[in-house]
C-alpha cells in the first residue's frame, strides 16, 4: 500500500510537471501538444514495456511487482495525460477518434482487470480449494467418472434406477462441464443452490442405501461446484488480457502512425 502510494505520488508529480510545462509552453505560444504528447507517448510506451518485461524474466530489470505497480499507476497517468494532451474527452477526426476509442477501451479493460485481480483472489481463497487452471478438464472428467461409477454401482447394488434416472435427466448436465459461469463471476450462489435443490428433491424417493450414494454424489458435486468457481474466476482473470493486450497493441500501432503523421505534417 505504501509503495503504491509512493508511486502514485511520483506519477502525480510527473503529471504536475508536465502540466506546468505545457502551461509554460502554451503561454510562450509554442506547442504544448508536443510536451504532453511526448509524455503521453513515453507513458504508453512504458505501459507496453510491461509486456516485454514479462517475456524476459531473467533480466535484472526490477522485480515484476514494482513493474505491476508502476503499470497500474502509469495507466491512470496515461489517461490523465491524454486529457491534458487532447484537452477534450472526445476528439474530432476519424483517425484520432478510433485511436481514442481504442485507448479508452484499453484503459477500461485495464481497470476492470485490476478490479478483478484485487477481488477475485479473495473469493478463490474463500472457496477452500485450489486447482490449477490447466488441470480443470482432467479434474472435472475425473469427478464425472466417479459420479457415473457411483450411479452405476447404485443401480447395480440397489436394483433401483431412481438415482440413475435423475442423474441422466438432471444431474448429468451439471457434471458435463463447468456450469454457472456468469453467476460465478459475480460471486453468486446459484450453483450451490442448484446442487442442493437437485439433491434434496430426490431424497424422498430413495431408500437408505440409495441415499448413501446420493450423499457421495452430493459430495462430488460440491467439489465440482468449487472447481467450477475456480474455472469461472480464473477464466476471467486470464481472459481479460485477451481484450487488453490486443487493444494495447492496436493503440500502440496507431500511436506510432499518429506520431509519423505529426512529424510529416507538423514538425
Amino acid at each position: 500500500m505504501k509503495r503504491t502510494l509512493g508511486y502514485a505520488v511520483i506519477a502525480i508529480l510527473f503529471f504536475a510537471l508536465i502540466w506546468v510545462w505545457t502551461l509554460e509552453v502554451d503561454s510562450s505560444l509554442n506547442y504544448p501538444e508536443f510536451i504532453s504528447g511526448g509524455a503521453l507517448f513515453f507513458t504508453i510506451f512504458f505501459l507496453c514495456l510491461f509486456n516485454i518485461r514479462k517475456r524476459v524474466p531473467f533480466l535484472p530489470l526490477w522485480p515484476a511487482r514494482k513493474w505491476f505497480l508502476l503499470h497500474t499507476v502509469a495507466g491512470f497517468l496515461a489517461l490523465s495525460l491524454f486529457w491534458l494532451h487532447a484537452g477534450i474527452m472526445w476528439p474530432n477526426g476519424l483517425y484520432v477518434q478510433i485511436l481514442v476509442f481504442l485507448f479508452y477501451l484499453t484503459t477500461l479493460s485495464g481497470i476492470v482487470g485490476l478490479v478483478m485481480e484485487k477481488v477475485y483472489p479473495n473469493l478463490l481463497t474463500r472457496i477452500g480449494l485450489e486447482c490449477i487452471y490447466e488441470r480443470i478438464p482432467r479434474d472435472i472428467a475425473e469427478i464425472r467418472n466417479k459420479a457415473e461409477t457411483l450411479v452405476f454401482e447404485c443401480t447395480e447394488k440397489t436394483g433401483s434406477d431412481t438415482l440413475a434416472q435423475h442423474y441422466l435427466e438432471t444431474l448429468g448436465w451439471f457434471f458435463q462441464r463447468p456450469r454457472f459461469f456468469i453467476n460465478n463471476i459475480f460471486g453468486g450462489q446459484n450453483a450451490q443452490t442448484w446442487v442442493m435443490q437437485q439433491c434434496s428433491i430426490l431424497e424422498r424417493f430413495l431408500n437408505a442405501s440409495e441415499r448413501d450414494y446420493l450423499d457421495k454424489i452430493f459430495a462430488l458435486a460440491e467439489i465440482k461446484r468449487k472447481i467450477d468457481f475456480h474455472y469461472s474466476l480464473q477464466t476471467m482473470l486470464k481472459n481479460w488480457l485477451l481484450i487488453h493486450i490486443p487493444l494495447a497493441a492496436a493503440v500502440m500501432t496507431m500511436v506510432v502512425w499518429h506520431i509519423i503523421v505529426i512529424q510529416v505534417f507538423f514538425n
Binding site: L241, L242, I245, P246, L247, A249, A250, T253, M254, W257
Partner: peptide, 13 residues
C-alpha cells in the same frame, strides 16, 4: 490465441 489476436489487431490497423 491472445498473441494471434494481438497480431491480428496490429495487422488490421
Amino acid at each position: 490465441i491472445r498473441g494471434q489476436i494481438s497480431f491480428l489487431a496490429v495487422a488490421a490497423i
